[in-house]
Design a protein around this nucleic acid. Structure first.
Length: 592
RNA sequence: GGGGUGGUGGCUCAAUUUGGUUAGAGCACCGGCCUGUCACGCCGGAUGUUGCGAGUUCGAGUCUCGUCCAUCCCGCCA
């Protein structure tokens, strides 16, 4: 085998006359008759190699048969390209390698798609041949960025005295939170491990063990339904520290994100990130992960409703509901048909009962529900909400949750339509003061908003028994461009408080003991106050490469139905395997 | 669990307002020509169970129903 002396991405005119050996893939083949050009590609770039029938007829004959993606090695001489034939678009465009020796290592079958063009096939097809898609320039780049981000993470945390400690992948199943992936135990029949949804309990135990600064870049697994930014297995940067306050964690998280963006992208993020309470984020942006690259905010509208004749909204306000509005430019684009489309979107996905609107033109509000508002009220609306001619107001009235949720989604939809988001901007922020628990009307119980180990806010402890819905937690999320990059909390480190929370969440004492007894026990033996957070590593890299799908930054991702199209997993297993595990399959119930 | 979009040679797409000859084109592949190409060019060739299954019809890529897969979204994801 020819051992390469150079890569395909480094030869320049400085190398002219050098004898070099290159290895790589045939990326392009241009046969001019007695002269043949091949673009040879490896991880580092492309180099044009030349075969000449006159000088090396034997080699030429073989080279002529080469096809796309054949793997070859060549020895040759670096020569300057003739005048006028330099390719300024290629790093190596000033030189050719005239081939004097050729080895063919592997001939490629006709390709399922063009690896020079990621758009040359549908995604399911590319996923089936993911190892080919990974040859594309885009995915090669994404994997490099992912590597750099992982290395920068380790460098940063290492230099701040964090220890990377691995935790088990086979662990105890807990039904709280997301659905677990289960792994049957052979040696303990009828028992199962679970794959971790996160190493949460382990890292807390590491705090008890005295590893006061821990981190891990770790795979996590959640068996829920998937999205463009959610895969069944994903990677977290998991971090925890002892004697940390919320500010300590947020400071560390800010520094890490700044370091990552600086190191990987050479981008300087602001010295400090803005911080919004959950309440303000919901009121102003209709989201707990607001995209603050966009200024448009939800505006209070109940006052004007009270002064109007619009009974549908008046009833909403009288019944304790909310009415809020968005002001959007370019009202001429919003024909009846377009507005109907938006209304459908609001109704179908966000439970809104409708979408009211008014247009501002020639100094008045017109159309939609404008006739229900007197001239004076209209004037106030225009002044207070800063409405200009050419704007359109969208208004939703409903119970609070629906209003905020729907308008939050509409805000993003309008931003997309109006192109209001600067794609090159970075808008990091913290969201704090999350509610500790949330009422679950289906099961008639309180659910932890973050997780059951999150500490309540010390100022709200007195409300724990009387008004749990208004107890804030010491939980926080970090948000970037409308994506939740990560989140965490100060944890409970006292057995008594933890027991109290479990009871609030409707987890009986013996159940809590069975599931989390090991953690509660650990708290008996000197547990330091501690807290931390976890970042969605895939999402960080996704944002860094300006993608909107984490599949783009995972080497071998799964589909939205959690299948791997390349190796066809999940798949059936042998009866023998099942027998060993003491498992038997239930016949599929006919659906419906 | 629900909604939207899509599925036609190896790949990307096309096939004129419910339908009508032999389902076309580009890329890739095979053969031939071509000594400065870099989206090389030119000539020729091979390639189709229109995702799958029913139905309507004299006739279905096209219409109806079901189903599978992909994708985006809602629910879900402590």
């Amino acid at each position: 085998m020819l051992k390469r002396t150079k890569t395909c991405g480094e030869l320049t005119e400085a190398n002219i006359c050098d004898n070099v050996t290159l290895t790589g893939w045939v990326a392009k083949h241009r046969d001019l008759g007695g002269l043949l050009f091949i673009d040879l590609r490896d991880r580092y770039g492309k180099t044009q190699i030349v075969f000449n029938e006159e000088t090396y007829p034997e080699i030429f004959k073989i080279a002529r048969k080469l096809g796309l993606e054949d793997v070859i090695g060549i020895r040759g001489v670096v020569v300057a390209r003739p005048e006028g034939n330099v390719n300024p678009d290629m790093v190596t465009g000033e030189v050719d390698v005239e081939v004097t020796e050729l080895d063919v290592y592997n001939e490629s079958a006709p390709l399922p798609f063009d690896v020079n063009d990621r758009n040359s096939a549908n995604e399911d097809h590319r996923l089936k041949y993911r190892y080919l898609e990974l040859r594309t320039a885009e995915l090669q780049h994404n994997m490099k960025v992912r590597h750099k981000a992982a290395k920068a993470t380790r460098d940063f945390l290492d230099s701040n005295d964090y220890l990377e400690i691995e935790t088990p992948v086979l662990m105890k199943s807990t039904p709280e939170g997301a659905r677990d992936f289960l792994v049957p135990s052979r040696t303990h029949k009828h028992k199962f491990y679970a794959l971790p949804q996160s190493p949460q309990t382990y890292k807390q135990l590491l705090m008890v063990a005295g590893f006061d600064k821990y981190f891990q870049i770790v795979k996590c697994f959640r068996d829920e339904d998937f999205r463009a930014d959610r895969q069944p297995e994903f990677t977290q940067i998991d971090i925890e520290g002892s004697f940390f306050t919320q500010d300590d964690v947020m400071e560390m998280g800010t520094s890490l994100v700044q370091y990552l963006w600086k190191t990987v992208l050479d981008i300087s993020l602001p010295d400090s990130f803005p911080s919004l309470s959950y309440h303000d984020a919901m009121e102003r942006f209709g989201s707990d992960k607001p995209d603050t690259r966009l200024e448009m905010e939800l505006q209070e509208f109940s006052e004007y409703v009270k002064q109007s004749e619009f009974n549908a909204f008046k009833t909403v306000v009288d019944n304790g509901g909310r009415v809020k509005a968005l002001v959007c430019p370019n009202n001429s684009k919003y024909s009846r048909k377009v507005i109907d489309g938006l209304t459908d979107y609001m109704k179908t996905y966000f439970g809104a009962k409708g979408l009211a609107w008014m247009k501002a033109t020639d100094g008045v509000l017109s159309g939609g529900i404008s006739k229900f508002f007197s001239e004076d009220v209209q004037a106030n609306i225009r002044k207070d909400l800063n409405v200009n001619d050419g704007d359109i107001l969208f208004i939703i009235g409903d119970e609070e949750k629906v209003v905020l949720n729907a308008l939050g989604a509409l805000r993003l939809e309008l931003a997309k339509r109006e192109n209001l988001i600067d794609e090159n901007a970075w808008a990091p922020l913290w969201v704090t003061d999350f509610p500790l628990v949330e009422w679950n009307p289906d099961n008639n119980c309180w659910d932890a908003l973050h997780h059951p180990f999150t500490s309540p806010h010390p100022d709200d402890l007195d409300k724990m028994d009387t008004d749990p819905g208004n107890v804030r937690s010491l939980g926080y999320d970090i948000v970037m461009n409308g994506y939740e990059l990560g989140g965490g909390s100060i944890r409970i480190h006292q057995r008594e408080l933890q027991e109290k929370i479990f009871r609030l969440l409707g987890i009986a004492d013996d159940e809590a003991n069975e599931k989390f007894g090991f953690l509660m026990n650990a708290f008996k033996y000197g547990a330091p106050p501690h807290g931390g957070m976890a970042f969605g590593f895939d999402r960080i890299v996704m944002l860094m490469v300006h993608s909107s799908q984490i599949r783009d930054v995972i080497a071998f991702p799964k589909t939205t139905s959690a299948m791997s199209l390349m190796d066809n997993s999940p798949s059936l297993v042998d009866a023998v395997q099942l027998e060993e595990l003491a498992l038997s399959l239930v016949k599929d119930e006919p659906s419906d």
